[in-house]
């Protein structure tokens, strides 16, 4: 459904020195830098699959989504979405996709949502009966039926986002691009949108690409994730694999009763794990799962321990360390 091979995109960005002098200088001579947003990336997404695209700010997630939706042209590479080259923007292609950008309103601010939807019905040529049925279903599922006649600009962020979702799905697209769809929303709205997306995927077998900084979005929606760092894919695989990594090691947090324990650490670890953080009284260790009972028992027997807690790393922590290009156990 989505096929990408060796995709590259570079932006030319104007750089200006700060201050008045920099502004005057840039009037006559501009400094440009090249920013590689996508560096030879490849991927494929099947029908009914929700792919989570993760990366730090500026990693290239939105650029990839924009290329796939046909908004921007790449420098090189092969892309086919539903058998179409996106940037050729054929109407047949545009009728089958949707793009939702959490940071950017796409509906007409001066109009009530109902008027926007009517216009979209005409634009996408949705038959009246199907339109009525879909709108009833979508507005009821997202709980915004009573807000349809209110101007978009008068709605709250969460309400507006729900309207954006309805607008994007009215024509029942086969491919949906979601760029941070839950940004700035409260927990209830986030959950409502997540549930709704799962339901939509279930019913329409749509392929979705989701970018989000909220791990809850990723954990509840995506079975597969791609981690992108400085325009390159550094991980493409099941989310479960990352979760398995979390289960391979445990974190032991120990609070001591003020005694100096530091000199005993090498002896304590004996090559069994690594130090995550340490302060005067608190020590955090990452220990292989099978070594945990031995280390915990050793700590309790040989040190004045006030408190000891054993926990697992969160998926987010591991993903963040991949964002930063760190090896496991290096973070301090």
């Amino acid at each position: 459904m989505i096929e990408v091979k060796n995709l590259k995109k570079t932006f030319r960005v104007h750089e200006k020195e700060p201050g008045l002098q920099g502004s005057i200088h840039s009037l006559f001579r501009r400094q440009w830098i090249k920013k590689e947003a996508l560096r030879d990336v490849s991927l494929a997404v099947k029908p009914g699959e929700i792919l989570g695209l993760l990366g730090a700010n500026g990693a290239g997630k939105t650029t990839l989504v924009k290329v796939l939706a046909g908004i921007i042209y790449p420098d090189s590479g092969f892309v086919k979405v539903l058998g179409h080259v996106p940037w050729q923007r054929e109407n047949q292609f545009r009728k089958q996709i949707a793009l939702i950008m959490g940071q950017k309103a796409q509906l007409w601010w001066d109009l009530p949502a109902a008027d926007c939807f009517l216009l979209l019905r005409e634009i996408y040529q949705v038959p009246p009966l199907q339109y009525r049925k879909t709108l009833d279903f979508l507005s009821a599922s997202l709980g915004v039926k009573d807000l349809l006649k209110i101007q978009i600009r008068r709605l709250s962020l969460g309400e507006r986002m729900k309207m954006e979702l309805i607008a994007a799905l009215l024509h029942q697209p086969k491919v949906v691009f979601l760029d941070e769809p839950t940004i700035g929303l409260d927990f209830t709205s986030q959950r409502a949108i997540r549930d709704f997306l799962l339901q939509y995927r279930e019913e329409h077998q749509a392929a979705m690409i989701l970018t989000s900084h909220y791990m809850e979005d990723i954990e509840s929606l995506c079975e597969r994730i791609v981690i992108i760092r400085q325009g390159k894919f550094v991980y493409d695989g099941p989310l479960a694999q990352i979760a398995d990594q979390c289960r391979q090691e445990k974190v032991i947090s120990v609070t001591f009763s003020g005694e100096n324990y530091e000199k005993n650490i090498p002896f304590l670890l004996e090559g069994k794990g690594s130090i995550l953080s340490q302060s005067n009284e608190i020590l955090k260790l990452r220990i292989p799962r099978e070594q945990v009972p031995q280390v915990a028992s050793h700590l309790l027997q040989n040190f004045p321990v006030i408190d000891l807690a054993i926990s697992e790393d969160e998926i987010a922590t591991i993903i963040e360390s991949i964002f930063r290009g760190e090896e496991r156990g290096e973070e301090k």
């Binding site: 939706a69 908004i71 545009r94 009728k95 949707a98 950017k104 796409q106």
Partner: peptide
Amino acid sequence: QGSLTRYLIYPV
């Protein structure tokens, strides 16, 4: 402002 995006997505 980047709002041209919507017209590139809509089939018009």
